[in-house]
Structure formats: C-alpha cells, structure tokens
C-alpha cells in the first residue's frame, strides 16, 4: 500500500515538473520570438504570418497549452529570422531590379 502511494506521488510530482518545464520552455520561446520580431519591425519588414504565429503562441500560453505555445513561438521566431535576412539582403539586391 505504501509502495502504491509512493508511485502515485512520484507520478504527480513528475507531471508537475514536466508542466513547469513546459511553461518555462514556452516562455523562453515566446521571448526569443519577440526579440527577433522587434528586429524585423525595426527593419520595416515584419511578416503577417509571424504576427499570426506570435499571437497564437500567446493565446496558447494563456490557455496553458505550453507545447502549442512553444511550437507557435518557434515558428514566429523562424519567420522573423527569415524576414530579417530578407530585409538585410534587399538593402543591396534591390538595385539589381532597377531598369537602366
């Protein structure tokens, strides 16, 4: 009986630790996305799908769905990183499109 109680307690504790870790990971991913999106905005090249993914991440985080929040935030960060690369490369490349 004691052994059973120990197993249940360990399981509950484990779930709690996993839940807390999920929350921390989601928060870290959201912060990472926010930082990248700030750079993209400063370069005047924010993408609408990045905004949508970030909003989805925040909503999932608020609803306690940390796995979804982390996944959406990582998507937002990846989109923001791509927009930053686009903006920086276009600083040079736009001139190639000018009729001469």
């Amino acid at each position: 009986m004691k052994r059973m109680a120990l197993v249940v307690a360990a399981a509950v504790l484990g779930l709690g630790v996993a839940h807390a870790a999920g929350k921390v990971d989601a928060a870290r991913a959201i912060a990472g996305a926010a930082a990248k999106m700030k750079i993209a905005a400063a370069l005047d090249d924010q993408w609408t799908p990045a905004i949508a993914a970030f909003k989805a991440a925040k909503a999932a985080d608020a609803a306690g769905d940390y796995a979804k929040a982390e996944a959406s935030a990582k998507r937002a960060e990846a989109l923001a990183a791509a927009s930053i690369a686009q903006a920086r490369s276009q600083k040079r490349l736009w001139q190639n499109a000018v009729p001469r």
């Binding site: 993408w47 989109l79 736009w94």
Partner: peptide, 8 residues
C-alpha cells in the same frame, strides 16, 4: 524595388 513579405 525591395522584396518584402513572406511571398518575397
């Protein structure tokens, strides 16, 4: 002339 947006 600058490409922008996800559709580039």
């Amino acid at each position: 002339y600058s490409r922008r947006g996800q559709l580039n």
